[in-house]
Simulated scan of single mutants.
Amino acid sequence: MTAIERDAVNAVGTAAYAQFEGVYSDWARFYAGAANLAALDIEGQVLVARDHSGAILGAVGYFGPGTPRPECFAPNTAVIRMLAVAPKARGGGIGRALTDACIERAKADGAPTISLHTSPAMAVALAMYQRVGFREVRTLPDRFGVPYAVYQRELN
C-alpha cells in the first residue's frame, strides 16, 4: 500500500467512525484506532473498495487463520476488523461487498469460520452482518463504555 493509499484509507476510517463521537467514553483513544485503519495492513490485509476514478470509498482489515488477532478470536478463524465506508458512499453496497470479499478470502484460506466483533451502537453494520449470516457467539466486556460481542459465521 502506498503512502497516498494509506492516507486515503485512514481518511475513510476517520470519516466513517466520526458519527460515534460522544458514544464512546474514551473517544480520543477509539478515534485514534479509526485514524490508523491502514496499520491493519501490517499483520493482516486491508481490502479497499474504489469508485470509477480509483478513489477509496471503503476499507476493511482481513486476518486469515493463524495471523495475529485480539484474544477474543480463536486462532483458526478468519477475522474482519474495522469495516469503514465513507459517509458519502453509504447505502451503495460497499460494506456488503467488502464483507463478502473477506468471506471469500476466508474460504480460500480454508478457515472453518469467520469472526468479528461489533456493538449495537453500530446498528447499520450489525444488521448487515446478521443478514449475511453472522450470529452472536459471545459477549465481551464493554469497550470504551460500549457493549460489544463476537459474531461468527460458519464457512462450508
Results as ranks from 00 to 15, higher is better:
V23C: 02
D41S: 15
A89L: 11
P65K: 00
R69V: 08
E43R: 06
P68W: 09
P112H: 08
L37K: 02
L57T: 14
V146A: 06
F63Q: 04
A125F: 03
Y129N: 01
G110P: 04
A11W: 11
R105W: 03
G61E: 00
G133F: 10
H52E: 15
G64T: 06
A11L: 12
F134C: 08
G44Y: 00
V60A: 03
A84R: 05
R138A: 15
A101H: 04
F63H: 10
L116R: 02
S115E: 10
V146C: 08
P68D: 08
L126P: 00
W27C: 08
L140C: 05
P70T: 04
R143K: 12
P87L: 07
A11V: 12
A18V: 00
A16Y: 07
D51R: 08
T14A: 10
Y62C: 04
Y31K: 11
P120I: 13
R105F: 02
I42R: 15
I94L: 12
I103Q: 03
G66F: 09
R96K: 14
A111D: 00
A39H: 06
V46C: 05
Q130M: 15
N36M: 09
F30L: 14
G95V: 11
A16Q: 06
C102I: 01
F20T: 06
G54F: 12
F20K: 04
R90H: 08
A32W: 09
A39M: 07
A101W: 01
D41I: 12
V150K: 02
I4T: 14
N76G: 12
L57V: 14
T118N: 06
Q45D: 13
R131E: 14
Y148R: 03
A121C: 10
K88D: 14
R50S: 11
A97K: 01
A49C: 03
A55R: 15
I42F: 12
L155K: 01
P87K: 05
V146E: 10
R131Y: 12
R138C: 09
A32K: 10
N156F: 12
V150N: 02
P87T: 08
A74P: 10
Q45H: 11
A32V: 10
N36V: 04
G92T: 13
V12Q: 03
R6I: 06
M1A: 11
A18F: 00
L155F: 02
N10P: 02
A78Y: 01
F20Q: 01
Y17V: 06
F20V: 09
Y24S: 04
V79W: 02
F63E: 01
A34I: 10
E71A: 15
V85Y: 08
G145D: 13
A55H: 14
T67P: 03
Y31H: 15
K88V: 13
Y151D: 04
P70I: 04
G58A: 15
L40Y: 15
G91Q: 03
N10G: 04
T77G: 10
R105M: 07
T14W: 05
E154V: 13
C72Q: 14
A106E: 04
F30P: 07
T77M: 09
P75C: 07
A74R: 12
P65E: 03
V60R: 03
R90S: 09
R138W: 05
S115M: 00
A78Q: 00
S119V: 09
F73P: 05
V79Q: 00
A123S: 14
D26V: 12
A121E: 13
A32T: 13
F134D: 06
A149L: 07
Y151H: 09
P87M: 07
R143G: 11
F30R: 14
